[in-house]
């Protein structure tokens, strides 16, 4: 008898398809739309230099400026959707780059500590760990009411452990679990790559998210 796909396989398939689609859109934005707009921008500059009428020159210059802003927007959107460094340089460089963006977006400083030597991971694992860390950091920005957080990457020969900690206001885990699907999604994502996810929180003391990925 043909085997029915189990829930894990389906979840894994959905998440993977979603990630592939996000990556495709990011690439299309960066390499396709972004490049076309850049060609338009250089064309606009060329027209701007050729035009002699002062009013028209100013108009062309405004349009070129708007195009420049749009190109920058498209590039940033593409990086936000799928950071290229995650594929080219690996998890840690992508996370370092994201933390800079995180601090400049939410005003929260994240102290990053690493130990051991980074071990290359499969793309699926890299993306999952990156997304789970992003979700944990987003929760800090939304709920923790803190100006600082800590992140630790510990590379061991047989596993990687990541700890994301804040000294914010903390929350009741049972309540949080029922109010948000984000926590369950983080756990599920880690489970799908063979990893573990632990959460602890104390009201008034803060929250700790621990990720553990064994290298099989």
């Amino acid at each position: 008898m043909e085997r029915q796909p189990v829930k894990n396989d389906i979840s894994s398939y959905i998440i993977q398809s979603q990630e592939e689609e996000i990556k495709r859109i990011a690439l299309e934005l960066h390499e396709g739309v972004g490049q076309t707009l850049y060609s338009l921008y250089t064309g606009m500059q060329f027209i701007g230099n050729a035009v002699e009428q002062v009013e028209m020159k100013g108009y062309v210059s405004d349009m070129a400026e708007l195009l420049e802003k749009t190109i920058q927007e498209i590039r940033l959107l593409a990086v936000e959707l799928h950071p290229p460094t995650l594929t080219t340089l690996g998890l840690l460089p992508a996370m370092k780059s994201y933390l800079k963006l995180y601090t400049s977006t939410y005003g929260i400083e994240v102290e990053l500590e690493t130990s051991g030597k980074e071990i290359p991971l499969e793309e699926r694992q890299r993306i999952t760990l990156f997304r789970v860390c992003q979700e944990a950091l987003a929760n800090i920005a939304r709920y923790a009411d803190t100006v600082k957080a800590e992140m630790t990457f510990a590379w061991q020969f047989d596993h990687l452990s990541i700890i994301i900690k804040d000294n914010g206001k903390g929350f009741n885990i049972d309540k949080g679990w029922h109010q948000s699907t984000g926590l369950a999604a983080m756990k599920e994502r880690m489970h799908l790559i063979g990893g573990e996810w632990h959460l602890s929180s104390k009201i008034g003391e803060g929250t700790v998210v621990e990720l553990y990925l064994p290298f099989i």
């Binding site: 802003k69 920058q72 927007e73 940033l76 601090t103 400049s104 977006t105 939410y106 005003g107 929260i108 400083e109 100006v147």
Partner: peptide
């Protein structure tokens, strides 16, 4: 095109000083 918060009054922390938002 980025936008930064330069001044604040009644702020509960200094996060605004580090926040940069995109146009």
């Amino acid at each position: 095109p980025d936008v930064r918060w330069h001044y604040a009054a009644g702020n509960s922390n200094d996060k605004y000083k580090k926040i940069t938002v995109r146009y």
